[in-house]
């Protein structure tokens, strides 16, 4: 008994040491963001801030285009999510519950595009956006984000749809409901947790995307957070790390909210998304 108690304590200590080591970069980000400029360039660094200040956050919001970037990212990620989840839900319903020729091939194609590298598509997409006059707009980014978000959402929703029991739908059909009626009244409520999970994943993917924004957008007024914040690093004469760390914290806010309140949806998405060996 004594020995297994000791073992438990050791496992705890080892685990928590590792966990804190993994979380350290994030703690360091927060610590740096509240250090005054003078304390930042101390050698060796102070591991705990001696004075806490929010001046960097204030400067970020008032003196930089951060809020414009933030708004662009919200519009971009929200529109992409709604568009992709709406298409994906109908598509997944069709792929799982209907019989027609080419259905299996289509499902394989979805999986294939889910693995495709973005750099292959970026050149033709860039040419396409220039040709139809959409380059340097949020619309071009929404369309570009569809290339990775739609296969992802479709694949995830397909797995969730497979988990909805078929006999409920059959019963509704026997009772005289139409297919779309059964879809609305029976399938959608059952699928809701899967839809939320997919929407969260899509939102995060779109929120974090960098390459398409780098190539397709080059003005501050339409830049999302990823390229916007990076441009603050590159354009600065001497890099203001505390300002950048404040931007990093602010940029992670939606994620922190999701983690605090909706984390179970994120982990359930993993079971569905391709890793079910």
């Amino acid at each position: 008994m004594q020995r297994s108690m000791l073992q438990g304590v050791i496992v705890n200590l080892v685990t928590w040491t590792l966990v804190l080591l993994i979380a350290f970069p994030l703690l360091w980000m927060i610590i740096t963001s509240v250090k005054p400029q003078t304390e930042l360039f101390r050698i060796p660094p102070t591991w705990f801030p001696e004075t806490i200040t929010f001046e960097h956050y204030w400067r970020l919001l008032t003196e930089t285009p951060f809020l414009t970037y933030f708004r662009n990212s919200v519009v971009l990620a929200t529109t992409t999510t709604i568009f992709v989840v709406a298409l994906g839900t109908l598509g997944a319903y069709s792929l799982v519950r209907f019989k027609y020729r080419g259905r299996e091939t289509l499902a394989m194609l979805v999986l294939f595009t889910y693995l495709l590298p973005s750099v292959v598509l970026i050149i033709p997409l860039y040419l396409m956006m220039v040709a139809i006059g959409l380059s340097n707009t949020l619309v071009s980014l929404i369309l570009a984000h569809t290339t990775f978000a739609l296969p992802y959402a479709l694949w995830l929703l397909r797995s969730f749809m497979e988990g909805v029991p078929e006999d409920l739908e059959s019963a509704a059909l026997v009772d005289g409901a139409s297919r779309m009626g059964a879809f609305r009244d029976i399938i959608l409520p059952q699928l809701l947790p899967g839809i939320i999970s997919t929407a969260l994943f899509t939102f995060i993917l779109s929120w974090n995307e960098y390459l398409y924004a780098l190539v397709l957008v080059n003005s501050d007024s339409v830049a999302p957070l990823t390229t916007g914040v990076m441009s603050m690093l590159i354009s600065a004469f001497n890099i203001e790390w505390s300002l950048l760390m404040a931007a990093s914290v602010m940029m992670s806010l939606p994620l922190i909210v999701v983690f605090a309140f909706l984390q179970s949806y994120l982990t359930s998405g993993f079971g569905a998304g391709g890793v079910k060996g």
Partner: peptide, 10 residues
């Protein structure tokens, strides 16, 4: 789940 941009900056 963190943005790569944030991870890289940190």
């Amino acid at each position: 789940f963190l943005s790569t941009v944030v991870a890289v900056l940190v």
